[in-house]
Design a protein around this nucleic acid. Sequence first.
DNA 1: GCCAACGTTGGC
DNA 2: GCCAACGTTGGC
Length: 153
Amino acid sequence: MGYWLMKSEPDEFGIEDLIRSDKQTTTWSGVRNFQARNFMRDDMKLGDLAFFYHSSCPAPGVVGTMKVVKAAYPDPTQFDPASDYFDPKSKPDNPTWVAVDLQFVKQFPLVSLEALRKEPKLAEMRLLQKGNRLSVLPVNAAEWKRIMSMVEG
DNA sequence: GCCAACGTTGGC
DNA sequence: GCCAACGTTGGC
């Protein structure tokens, strides 16, 4: 089973929005970076777990977990001229971008970026590497366990 | 708002 | 294919 970290700006879509969503499930659309797309398209599997990460906000960090309930499929927003994520170059017979469906699993008190950085066992995490900007990142099993143990205190 | 870091675009 | 210019991300 794979583990992931998905970033979202809470002003746009935070974990509270996921909890309030129909079936506590959302379409994770709008990813417009090729590396992040490739992770979703090629490696993200049904049943994988993901951290929900709040970014670009006063208190960035991990706030909960989700699971993949639908693997990659064409992101509908790329074909919607009314969407901020519309991509006129993408054609329905050869879509450029993909979405996945994620279901809420658990919410917990913020595990802040600062706390993650202080944890020696997480020093190699992709999230914490200099210049990282990907909104979809793989997390290895040891990192996942370590962060979950930080949650439990 | 600043700025480092990185991705994308487009001229050549 | 190179690379400068530009745009975006995201912490601070």
